[in-house]
Design a protein around this nucleic acid. Structure first.
Lengths: 99, 99
DNA sequence: TCCAAAGATTAGAAGATTATAATATTATAA
DNA sequence: TTATAATATTATAATCTTCTAATCTTTGGA
């Protein structure tokens, strides 16, 4: 990786590194949802969700399509889902996390 | 993932989300190195490297073994290396990055 | 014993992120 | 055309992060 590539990669990782944003990615793994569905399921404010979705879109992780007064969010790169398994193992193996 | 798990996962991702820290992970993919070798190869200060290594160790990404006056760093969980490919694709496909 | 090399720690300024509250926009239905 | 539901924006205080510079600590060799 070049230096520039590391800088951009750091930005993408930062975009994932937040409980709400991880929650969004996980929910979208199960298919499209509206913004409202996302903040209701994750228990955060509308404003918070809107701000977090912006960050996810900017880093190419989520796309949004408009339909009437609603917006449907979807995962843009489902490849990142494999990270969740990896993390699950990491937490248990190296950080001794147990539910 | 539970809420707690998402919080811990966010911490691990944050620990990776920095150009120097990504550089360390990448270099260690090629095998053990001393702290000095790392900061020389990545062109940062000794103090910076020491601080960044601490973060990587705290999140279980790197381990350090002592040998005399030196310390050898190694990757603790090489599983994360697959992220680099994933990122490489992501930057090109979704963020239109070209060297 | 004393020095030098390797690494850790601390402090602090500058900048970035988070979360909340308040307000603005937009599109449809009545 | 107005009210309302859905989403975006802006502002702000509080909290983290980053980076630099200066100062420890530890270990092995002269």
């Amino acid at each position: 990786m070049t230096h520039d590539e590391r800088k951009l990669t750091a930005e993408v990782l930062k975009a994932m590194a937040h409980p709400v944003r991880l929650g969004v990615i996980e929910l979208l793994a199960g298919g499209e949802r509206t913004c409202t569905a996302l903040y209701e399921e994750l228990g955060c404010s509308q404003s918070m969700m809107s701000q977090q979705l912006k960050i996810l879109c900017q880093q190419g992780l989520v796309t949004i399509r408009k339909e009437g007064t609603q917006k449907y969010c979807a995962l843009q790169n489902p490849d990142f889902l494999k990270l969740f398994d990896c993390m699950h193992n990491h937490l248990r193996t190296f950080l001794h996390f147990t539910d």
